[in-house]
Simulated assay, not measured.
Amino acid sequence: MALTLRTDSELEKALDALVEAEGVSRQEVIRRAVIDRAERGTRRHDLDVVLDAELPRYAEALERLGQ
Rank of each mutant, 00 (worst) to 15 (best):
Q67H: 11
D46Q: 15
L62S: 01
H45E: 14
E10M: 07
E63S: 08
L15Q: 03
E39N: 08
A53C: 03
D48S: 12
E20Q: 13
V24L: 00
V19D: 05
G23N: 03
A17K: 13
L65I: 09
R32V: 00
L5S: 02
R57K: 13
A53G: 07
A59I: 01
L11I: 12
Q27C: 06
T7Q: 06
L15H: 04
E39R: 13
Q67R: 15
T4Y: 08
A21I: 00
S25N: 06
E63H: 10
V49A: 12
L3R: 15
A14W: 15
L62Q: 04
I35K: 12
D48Y: 09
A59F: 01
A21V: 01
L18S: 10
D48G: 13
V24Q: 00
M1P: 10
E20T: 13
G41R: 12
L47Y: 03
M1N: 11
V19F: 06
Q27E: 14
L47K: 04
D36P: 00
A33L: 06
A38S: 08
A2W: 13
A17M: 09
L47H: 02
R32G: 00
Q67S: 13
A59C: 00
S9F: 05
A53I: 05
T42W: 12
V34T: 09
E39F: 03
G41Y: 05
A53K: 14
E20C: 06
E54I: 04
R26N: 01
S9A: 15
L55H: 04
R26M: 01
A14M: 14
V49Q: 15
A61Y: 08
T7W: 07
G41T: 07
T4M: 08
V34Y: 05
R31A: 12
D16Y: 02
M1T: 12
E60C: 01
D36R: 15
R37W: 10
P56R: 07
L15K: 03
V50F: 08
D36V: 01
P56S: 08
G23V: 00
A21Q: 12
R57F: 02
E28P: 01
R43W: 09
R64N: 03
V34M: 11
E39Y: 04
V29N: 02
A21K: 10
D36K: 12
I30P: 03
E63M: 04
